[in-house]
Amino acid sequence: MNKIKYIAIILIFSTSFVSCDLDETQEVVTKNNLVWSDEFDTDGAPDPNNWNYEIGDGSAQGIPGWGNNELQYYTDRPENVKVENGVLVITARQESFQGSNYTSARLTTKGLMDRQYGRFEARIRVPYGKGYWPAFWMLGDDSDGEIWPQIGEIDIMENVGDEPTVAFGSIHGPGYSGGESIGKDFELENDRFDTGFHIFGIEWSPNRINYYIDDKLYQSLTPEDVDEETDGEGVWVFNDRSFYIILNLAVGGNLPGSPNAETEFPQSMIVDYVRVYE
């Protein structure tokens, strides 16, 4: 999630279908064997077999503000994260807590579901307003002592609250991290990401990551793209290790900027499901 701006790639790969029902959306992908999922069907705390939490403002992790000057303090309190009515609700609140002015939550599958290759998909509704920064993303396993950006980062969905019709997907690795990540914006026509659920996914294979939103494949990234975007400096690190999933709702920071007087709190990032296919 360390980035300031995005470099649009030249390769545009777009497919559209007449219908929007779920079966049709599968046609943008080829991996259809469900191997892991959380449908968030049991009210209460998220399933501890699937999710753990990153707590705090990043200081304990050595990256205050989570590396982006973010403003929230992550907790695992039900006020910030719970499963209710069939969905996972991650709620950002404006409140004084442990020296921060906002609270929210960040869930990961680290150590619980780490996987290399596959189709990673979630159905999400995001909040709106300046300062909100929801994300559905993945980091590479660092148990071998390797560090970011060598471990790789795959951002499946990010959005900033003052651009309610735009979501973006990107990758980070050595030579293309932070503000130099490689990715692309996707803009909805006649719809918004904060007023209904949308499906965000990647299909990750050796030497290729395809990005799709709903029934539209909008980006396909390969080592050639990394070469081209970094003048041969960057390294494709997505054939090396397994990755885990992260869901979080950040507030403020370098990318979205701070909330303003019109930003409404609390609001939630709502996740209907997370599914992994092979």
């Binding site: 309610p164 006649n190 719809d191 904060d194």
Partner: peptide
Amino acid sequence: ENLGTIGQ
């Protein structure tokens, strides 16, 4: 117009 992008 029916913009579809007006929300909230």
